[in-house]
């Protein structure tokens, strides 16, 4: 029974996803949907890092920029095809994560936070000033569309399927890692490094692994970003962007992969819907983070799941016909 209903849900979901590009007429809107999908990939990386392993990165857009510039430079300067530049982008972002992770992850957790912010600032400066290599503030233009065996991903609609496919692959892979031994060791490290060490977990290596995997997702996102927009410049990857990514992950609930995905879509569309507030985007974003941390640090999914748990417990305690007063349960949550 359960399996059947699961399959039905999956099918429904697939139909909804497949029909999205046919329901959205405007290319611009579809472009925003695609961008949100790319951010969702990166935000899943943050969930990995923050929600699972308990490490904070304030510079994930810097890691995205590594992926974007790697693929952009390889494709434009060396005319390499996507099948080569895509993995290259991922590998180079992972290398950068190693570079930052090795010195900082042995230390207290705020070092990684500050070092990633530093990387964000430093990389921005390098991208702006090293004009001969990065083209400075002008950025890289005319990044080609990816093509496979003669078929080029050209339209926004094609991009939509492409991004959703990669998003699903990343999600399934991440979900499997979450459930595996590695995922459990991430969570053990988050719960307490000392206790994890006693359990025989190499805390330092576990944290590095989490950061490198997280960076791989950021690099993937950066690479897709470059090929979707066909243009990248340093300002696409500034500190504000990093904080926006963070707020996406905590809005949905940093301990839930799907929460991150939902957060990415909601927070990409919210500013689009609230166009008139665009000038205050950073203000609103900052206040949003502040409020989430004060009111519901576990995010949307956290609140919902604790609500569910309360309902479940109530049901177990009470006989079925004496059903609990739902309003009361919700009242407690507030």
């Amino acid at each position: 029974m359960k399996k059947v209903s699961k399959i039905i849900i999956m099918l429904l979901l697939a139909i909804i996803i497949l029909s999205v590009p046919h329901l959205i007429k405007s290319d611009y809107t579809l472009h925003v949907v695609n961008l949100a999908g790319i951010y969702a990939i990166c935000v899943m990386g943050l969930v990995f890092l923050l929600g699972f392993a308990g490490q904070l990165s304030l510079g994930h857009s810097a890691l995205m920029s590594i992926g974007a510039y790697t693929t952009g430079l390889l494709a434009v300067e060396l005319n390499l095809p996507f099948v080569i530049t895509f993995p290259a982008a991922i590998v180079v972002s992972m290398l950068f994560a190693l570079l930052i992770g090795i010195p900082t992850l042995k230390l207290k957790s705020f070092y990684l936070a500050m070092a990633t912010r530093g990387l964000n600032i430093a990389l921005f400066i390098v991208l702006i000033n090293w004009k001969r290599f990065t083209h400075g503030a002008d950025g890289i233009v005319n990044i080609p569309r990816p093509s496979f065996a003669g078929f080029t991903i050209q339209t926004e609609r094609a991009w939509f399927y492409f991004i959703v496919a990669i998003l699903i692959v990343c999600y399934i892979a991440s979900r499997n890692i979450e459930k595996s031994r590695i995922g459990r060791s991430f969570k053990a490290v988050k719960e307490g490094e000392l206790a994890a060490e006693v359990m025989g977990i190499d805390v330092y290596r576990t944290k590095i692994l989490a950061f490198v995997l997280s960076s791989a997702l950021a690099g993937t996102a950066g690479c897709l970003f470059a090929h979707l927009n066909q243009f990248i410049c340093p300002n696409d990857f500034n500190i504000t962007q990093s904080v926006t990514l963070l707020s996406m992950s905590i809005f949905g609930g940093s301990e839930y992969l799907l929460g991150g995905v939902v957060g990415a879509y909601v927070l990409t569309f919210l500013p689009e819907a609230l166009r008139f507030l665009q000038t205050y985007a950073r203000f609103i974003n900052g206040i949003l983070i502040l409020l989430i941390m004060i009111l519901a640090p576990s995010g949307l999914f956290g609140v919902v799941s604790s609500l569910f748990e309360k309902l479940k417990r109530q049901k177990k305690l009470d006989p079925p016909n004496n059903s609990p007063n739902i309003a009361d349960v919700e009242g407690m949550e507030n």
């Binding site: 923050l50 904070l56 504000t240 963070l246 905590i250 203000f283 900052g286």
Partner: peptide, 25 residues
Amino acid sequence: KPTYKAGRFAFLLASVGLSMALQDL
């Protein structure tokens, strides 16, 4: 006061959010 008990990053993230909001303010 409202964040220091809610896990180790709540305060840190809240202060990051505040810093961004203040820059725009």
